[in-house]
Simulated scan of single mutants.
Amino acid sequence: MPMKPSGAADRSSRFGPLHRLISHSPVGRGWRRSREIELWSRSLGFAALGLLTLVPLLIIVSSADPEHGRGFAQWLGEGLGVSTASMRQVEQLFTGPGQALRTTTAFGIAALAVFGLTFGAAVQTGYEKVWGLSPARWWARWRHVMWLGVLTGYLYVSATTALRREPLAGGAVVSLSAVLLLWWSQRLLLGGRIRWRALFPGAVATVIGLLGLRVFSRLVFSPLIASNTVTYGPMGTVLVIQSWLVGVGIVVFGGALVGRLLHEELPRMAHARKRRR
Rank of each mutant, 00 (worst) to 15 (best):
R88Y: 05
A106C: 05
L76Q: 15
E91Q: 07
S41Q: 05
S63I: 02
G71N: 09
A85T: 14
L80G: 13
L101F: 12
G71K: 10
V61L: 13
A100P: 06
G69T: 10
L58D: 00
T105V: 03
V55L: 10
L54H: 03
V61N: 08
G45V: 00
V82K: 15
F46Y: 08
E78K: 15
R102M: 11
G98L: 11
P56F: 09
T104I: 09
L58I: 00
L58F: 05
A100Q: 10
S62N: 10
F72C: 14
L101C: 07
R42N: 04
R70N: 02
E67C: 09
A106Y: 04
F107A: 05
E78L: 15
R88V: 00
E78N: 15
S62M: 06
A48K: 00
M87T: 14
S41V: 00
A73E: 07
F94E: 05
G79L: 13
L80E: 01
S43A: 06
T105H: 09
S43N: 02
L93W: 03
P97F: 13
L57P: 01
P66V: 00
W40D: 08
Q74K: 13
Q89L: 11
F107W: 01
G108R: 02
A73V: 06
G71S: 09
A106V: 04
W40A: 12
A64T: 10
E67Y: 13
G77N: 15
W40P: 00
L80Y: 14
Q99S: 07
L44K: 03
L93A: 06
L52Q: 01
L76D: 14
A48F: 00
R70T: 01
I60Y: 13
P97N: 08
V55P: 03
T53K: 04
V90N: 04
L57V: 01
A100T: 11
P97D: 02
A47C: 01
V82I: 15
V55W: 04
L101Q: 09
R42C: 00
S43R: 01
T84K: 14
Q99E: 11
E78T: 15
V55H: 06
Q89K: 11
E67Q: 11
L54K: 02
T103G: 14
E91R: 04
A73Q: 10
I59C: 12
F94G: 10
G71F: 06
G98S: 11
L57S: 02
H68K: 11
P97M: 12
M87H: 13
F94V: 01
I59E: 09
G77L: 14
V61G: 06
T53M: 03
L76F: 15
T104R: 04
P66T: 00
G96R: 07
S63E: 07
